[in-house]
């Protein structure tokens, strides 16, 4: 997973990198580490896939993409990985995950998050996904967001109690 230094760097930067000429230097000074180590650790986390990407993180809502549809699909188990790759590659799908079904409560095993300016835009995209999945899917639903009740970056907690693998 991540070591103590990496965890400290993520905790320090989770609300964003400082907008100063030398941001890694600024982080390093706060943590009492050499700036080169901060750069190295971030690079290592990127290479290991712990960090997916670093860059500008836009707010979909502020950009006018106010409709957020979580499309959920019941896809045949033997085909879900293949289909997940296809759906995940679509440029309008921001997240695509396989999740467990739950007996009698939840039949859907593939989740694809779609952002749009209008419900119609999201519906068109759902139709397009349905075509791609074809007979591999046995049912689907779209859960539109009604209210954002809380949205923050991941907050690290209980720093000293955490099991770190240094």
């Amino acid at each position: 997973m991540i070591d103590r230094t990496e965890r400290a760097i993520i905790a320090e930067t989770q609300s964003g990198l400082p907008l100063v000429a030398r941001p890694y230097q600024a982080i390093a000074e706060k943590l009492g580490l050499p700036a080169t180590l901060v750069e190295q650790k971030i690079k290592a986390m990127l290479e290991r896939g712990v960090i997916r990407r670093i860059g500008a993180v836009p707010d979909h809502y502020r950009l006018g993409y106010t409709v957020n549809g979580m499309s959920v699909w019941d896809v045949e188990d033997g085909l879900v990985d293949e289909m997940g790759e296809l759906v995940g590659a679509l440029d309008y799908v921001t997240h695509c995950y396989r999740r467990p079904r739950r007996a009698r409560l939840w039949p859907y095993n593939l989740f694809a998050m779609i952002h749009g300016r209008t419900n119609e835009e999201v519906e068109d995209k759902v139709d397009a996904i349905a075509k791609i999945l074809g007979p591999a899917q046995h049912g689907h639903d779209v859960l539109y967001s009604k209210r954002i009740l809380k949205k923050t970056g991941i907050r690290l907690q209980n720093q000293d109690k955490q099991s770190c693998s240094d």
């Binding site: 993520i10 930067t13 989770q14 609300s15 964003g16 990198l17 907008l19 971030i42 986390m45 896939g49 712990v50 960090i51 997916r52 990407r53 670093i54 860059g55 500008a56 993180v57 836009p58 707010d59 502020r62 950009l63 970056g153 991941i154």
Partner: peptide
């Protein structure tokens, strides 16, 4: 203006 929530890392 809230257009960017931040410049930073997306953690897996």
């Amino acid at each position: 203006r809230g257009i960017l929530s931040r410049v930073g890392a997306i953690v897996a």
